Computed example of a mutant assay.
Amino acid sequence: MTIKNLVTAAEWQARCELAALYRIIAYYKMTDLIDTHISLRLPDQPDCFLINQYGVAFEKMQASTLVKINHAGAVVESYEQEKPVNMAGFVIHSAIHAAHPHLNCVIHTHTADGIAVSAQKHGLLPISQHALKFYQYLAYHEYEGVALSTDEQERMIADLAGHRAMILRNHGLLVAGESIARAFHEIYFLERACQAQIKALSGGAELHYPSEEVCVKTAKQFASPLVEPILQRAWLAALSLIEHQQAEYSA
């Protein structure tokens, strides 16, 4: 049953966009059964964000199944009281939304390649163009067990510092962005960088590294404001891949 008539127009638009993002993450096979999570701050209620109803497959996410919670972890609306939320999702996402008001979308994944790189002592290597996007723009957070304690939030935020992307050691990947388009771009490139690294290392051949000068130059190119239109085009292109599902996820 749709809740479109129970929310503001701004919230409904956000719900539809986030449901689409969940399905796109599924399209690119970055899911882990019912675990991992994506959140989006509500534009007209900045102290609240949307997150998935725990137990709904990303492939089947709909605008009405998303849950609105505040930074304290409380479900905001009475019509959503029966929708369970992953506690680890709340701990991770609420910390970032509360500490960084400009970061509106947060994506966390447990892909095989992301986990593999998170377990490698050297972390992400500067061996691909995708990886160079994150050169000196990538944080790391030490594994502390399943993220169920709010005590971990302060350390996680300290480790993230001013970055948009972070590798959670022995766990997975975490990115954030000012918009859904930005967050999607971050997770797509970080995931591809991890995939390339695992394949390159598995070959057993000596790796070639770009010079320090080129690494720094490339990272700055990706950080340029000129990239913003590209992010939007990439997001629209990704949306086109699931356009046949629009009636489903916008319900």
Score class of each variant (00 low, 15 high):
Leu124Glu: 00
Arg15Lys: 05
Ile187Pro: 03
Arg182Leu: 12
Ser128Arg: 01
Ala57Ser: 12
Asn104Arg: 11
Thr218Asp: 06
Asp47Ala: 09
Glu77Lys: 08
Val106His: 02
Pro229Gln: 12
Cys215Asn: 11
Asn5Met: 08
Ala10Gln: 09
Gln129Ser: 10
Trp235Met: 07
Ile242Glu: 03
His171Gln: 13
Glu11Lys: 02
Thr8Asn: 08
Ala116Pro: 00
Thr65Phe: 11
Tyr27Pro: 00
Ile107Pro: 01
Gln136Leu: 10
Asn5Ile: 08
Leu125Asn: 03
Ser78Asp: 15
Ala88Val: 07
Ile24Trp: 01
Ala251Ile: 14
His102Pro: 00
Asp113Gly: 01
Pro46Tyr: 06
Pro210Glu: 13
Pro229Phe: 09
Gln197Thr: 06
Gly89His: 09
Leu207Ser: 05
His208Ala: 07
Leu40Glu: 02
Gly73Gln: 12
Gln120Leu: 09
Lys60Thr: 03
Ser94Ile: 03
Ala26Ser: 02
Leu50Tyr: 02
Glu142Ala: 09
Leu239Thr: 06
Ile24Cys: 00
Gln232Val: 13
Leu148Lys: 14
Phe189Ile: 01
Leu6Pro: 05
Cys48Val: 08
Cys105Val: 15
Gln195Trp: 10
Asn170Tyr: 12
Glu248Phe: 13
Gln153Ser: 08
Asp159Ser: 14
Thr36Trp: 10
Val216Thr: 14
Leu241Ala: 08
Gly172Leu: 11
Ser118Lys: 05
Tyr249Thr: 07
Asp151Met: 11
Leu132Gln: 08
Ile25Leu: 04
Gly89Trp: 08
Tyr249Ala: 07
Ala237Lys: 15
Ile3Ala: 08
Glu11Leu: 05
Ala74Leu: 14
Ala181Pro: 05
Leu40Trp: 06
Gly145Pro: 02
Gly162Cys: 06
Glu213Phe: 12
Ala26Met: 00
Ala238Trp: 05
Asp47Asn: 14
Ile230Met: 08
Ala72Pro: 11
Phe90Asn: 06
Leu103Tyr: 14
Ala19Tyr: 09
Tyr140Ile: 03
Ala200Asn: 04
Pro210Ala: 13
Tyr188Phe: 14
Ala183Met: 10
Val67His: 09
Ser202Glu: 15
Glu77Pro: 01
Tyr188Lys: 08
Asp159Tyr: 09
Glu206Ser: 07
Asn86Lys: 09
Gln81Phe: 13
Thr65Cys: 06
Lys217Pro: 00
Ser211Ile: 11
Ile24Ser: 00
Val85Pro: 01
Gln62Ile: 10
Ala57Leu: 11
Ala165Cys: 13
Leu174Arg: 04
Ile157Thr: 14
Glu248Lys: 05
